[in-house]
Amino acid sequence: MSQAACTVEVSDLIKAFRVNGQPLRVLDGVNLRADRGTFVTLIGPSGCGKSTLLNIVAGLQHPDQGQILFDGVATGDRLGRVGLMPQRDLLLPWRTVLGNALLGPELHGEDPEAARRDALSLLPLFGLQGFADSYPAALSGGMRQRAALLRTFLCRQGVLLLDEPFGALDALSRSGLQEWLLRVWQQFGYTVLFITHDVEEALFLSDRVYVLTERPARVCLELDVPLSRPRERAITLLPEFALLKQQVLAALAGTCPDETGRPR
């Protein structure tokens, strides 16, 4: 039933748009790699093209140059191959929590009864027990976000693309959801590409962090996070964590040496 998690590679990705008739390069040779079952975060200034990158990996947009490889194989048609979760929860307002969660299985023609049982059994893990028949309008922001994540998880695609899923939430709900996301992710073992603006969130969650430059985006820092799992909130107070944070912040401030040697 569940698609096995796979390794995702992005190779020399270039993408330009035409804005008011002027070509605008958004991605300028981005390379990155998320090994099977790892949690990889992209962090970069607003508007640097992170969402474009995820849309390309999801197959919604086509790169001008470069490739997306799943388990080492260049994959052209990626629609339906990944679970994408955009910034807004985009729950269908006329469907209940359960109906929204079952969207993936329904689109893929899975057995509705089995999918339903499956989804119901996951509601407690997603903190939605007792809300199966509630409409999205009746949920809090955090619950809506978890319902959207449940929908994404139930696509069973092995690769999750999460575009600032907690961006719109307050700091407290956010930190609770980060810990919760780690638990859920460890249970499912999916490969995750995660986008955020928040350095601490990036380091706390990830096995590896990529820092992107301003537009046109390139990778200016690739940083492995050697902190053991499962992780507690307290690790954010360790000196190692502070050192990693310093590196990312320095890269974001544009002080890291430019690998390609091109002028910035």
Partner: peptide, 14 residues
């Protein structure tokens, strides 16, 4: 219909 919603369904292979 919300274009982002349409894109989301497209990404799910609809």
């Amino acid at each position: 219909a919300d274009p982002e919603m349409l894109a989301l369904l497209q990404s799910m292979g609809a």
